[in-house]
Simulated assay, not measured.
Amino acid sequence: MLRLYSAIWRASAGRQILLILLSVAVAALAAVPLEFQRAIVNHLTSLDVGSERLVYLGLGMMGVILLSLALKWVLGYRAGTLGEDMIRLIRQRLLWRSSDINETGESVRKGTMTTAISAEAEELGKFAGGAFSDPVVQIGTLISVIGYISSTQPGLGLIAFSMIVPQIIIVLVSQRKVNVFVAERVRILRSATDQLTNEDLDAVEQDINALFDDIYETRKRMFLWKLSAKFLLSVINGAGTVGILMLGGWLVLEGKTDVGTVVAATSGLGRIQGPTAFLIAFYRQVSANRIKYELMLELFGPDPTRYRHRA
């Protein structure tokens, strides 16, 4: 993983720093709407209800939401264009490598190089665009929201935090197995593509169909692991929601907290489920792209660095 990230940083350090700063700003605003929500609910349930304060709270909440959306728009645009630039860069270097292979007569098959240029380069390039900013936004959002819930009611914050740890364990265990299937699928697909370049397709048709069957079986095993993990993660999310409502309701009945805090905590729980799900998917994406990056390096031969600064 460090090898993949160091390569991305070397190619785009300056632009990544800007994306990280934007990500921090977005994450810092994540919990602010929850405080407005808590204040609005408590205002409505208080004895002294005035429409003027309600309007101010609503306008303030909408202002924060608009600012956050504007920052996300800029972040998304910058990350997307960076990803496209990385796709172009990878394809250029693969093209240079193809030219060298033609000159030296090395044994890299055309089908493998075609697959790398058309599909694998796009997947790696898109990932590079958000490789740093995406996790910063989501981790920052988790810290911001859980920190806010804990500051208003520590017990509710503990429930929110306790949901994350078992999900991390489940993903780490399941993804190790999925990574094996990812590498296997890429190798099988490359082999099938290489055989498709054979002039006598009739002679290799049976072998290619067998490879397609292997890809199908590999994907089936991947689905079993990924869907089982997703089921367990959903169970944990459901249990967390029930726990927040039950504990929060009891605290309200005992006079130890207010309705607005419970509503904000429940809403915050929904806010952390999104980043948690994203980080889980992102970890899987990192793991898969690490395998693809290592497989792509094999195409560049013993000295990949010679293609970094070629004019």
Rank of each mutant, 00 (worst) to 15 (best):
I8W: 05
W9G: 03
S12A: 15
A13C: 12
I17C: 02
I20H: 05
L21D: 09
L22F: 14
A28G: 00
A28Q: 04
L29C: 03
A30I: 00
P33W: 01
R38W: 01
N42H: 05
N42Q: 02
T45P: 02
G50Q: 10
E52Q: 13
V64A: 05
S68A: 12
K72V: 12
T81F: 10
T81V: 10
L82S: 06
E84A: 10
I87R: 13
I87A: 10
W96V: 14
S99F: 10
D100V: 08
I101E: 05
T104R: 09
T104C: 07
R109H: 09
K110F: 00
K110C: 00
P135G: 00
P135N: 02
V136Q: 03
V137E: 00
T141A: 07
S144C: 03
V145F: 08
I146T: 03
I146S: 01
I149A: 00
I149G: 01
S151K: 09
T152L: 01
I170V: 15
L172I: 11
R176N: 15
E184P: 08
V186T: 15
R190Y: 07
D194Q: 01
V204Y: 07
Q206D: 15
I208K: 11
N209P: 05
F212A: 14
T218D: 01
F223P: 09
L224A: 06
K226H: 12
K226G: 12
S228C: 09
K230G: 05
L232N: 11
V242H: 12
I244R: 13
E254F: 07
E254K: 13
G255I: 01
G260Y: 04
V262C: 01
V263G: 06
V263I: 14
G270Y: 11
R271G: 04
I280S: 15
A281G: 15
R284T: 08
A288P: 07
R290K: 08
I291S: 04
E298T: 13
R306C: 02
R310T: 11
